[in-house]
Write a protein that binds this DNA or RNA. Sequence first.
DNA 1: TTAAATAGCTGTAGTCACTACAGATAGACG
DNA 2: CGTCTATCTGTAGTGACTACAGCTATTTAA
Lengths: 138, 138
Amino acid sequence: MLSIGELSRATDCKVETIRYYEKIGLMPEPARSAGNQRRYGERHRDRLHFIRHSRQLGFSIEAIRELLSLADHDHQDCAAVDALTRHHRQEVEARIRSLAALRDELDRMLRDCAGGDIAHCGVIQTLADHGRCDSEHI
Amino acid sequence: MLSIGELSRATDCKVETIRYYEKIGLMPEPARSAGNQRRYGERHRDRLHFIRHSRQLGFSIEAIRELLSLADHDHQDCAAVDALTRHHRQEVEARIRSLAALRDELDRMLRDCAGGDIAHCGVIQTLADHGRCDSEHI
DNA sequence: TTAAATAGCTGTAGTCACTACAGATAGACG
DNA sequence: CGTCTATCTGTAGTGACTACAGCTATTTAA
């Protein structure tokens, strides 16, 4: 059996985060030692690995809750899992496109900045006047 | 003079957000009507435009606070503004790269999912076992 | 002129996914 | 046995808003 600190090291997940996952019902309540400390088994470790990996991939807590519940029912078709993943992928893709537009806009601003006084600084002027920039990032 | 609702429409910024910016000291306290309602002038509108545009470009409130203070001192060299913008641009670029790695990982998971039982679902298995995937997204 | 509808006021609490702390108890090691 | 580290619970803080409750101002139509 693992203490919460051992589980923390095994999964690279902070102790506080583990307790947080338990509080919101993402991790089940573990057994306790005689002195009321949490004791975890392999199933807890596997589940926490699953959660942390999903978080690293950007899934929201609610999405993970659903993935976990789907994963618990082996006999079901995995179409639902697939759909959830595909949806998440589309959101990531959209976020990338939006950030790329931002980066390009920042580059334009920096190109326009010839140095010298703030009064003529391209960055400040672009920030002050939205009309001057391509508005693709909205 | 503009009411808070008019300013809101003029800058596409919610009324609550305007009051929030005032509370955190990003927007100055405006004049008030006889009945204690906020009344804004052009300078307020320009400043709010600046703030909103900067937020759309992903600058944090603290970064904007600094940009505003730099912009207020016309005589200073704009190197500081440039540096702030460049730094932000690097962060955006890093975020893009990290998200692209996530997207690729999600694509790999989806390719591995041949349909059928959850028990053999590539998505669930990858989520359950971090070792199976390229770890570039960490 | 007055009633109704809309807009605005303050202050507090909620969001997400944690993170940090305070003050207490448990367990490990010499 | 003492000391040190780990763990316990509960609460509050983060960023950048957003939502709501219960009140007052202002505008518009009758």
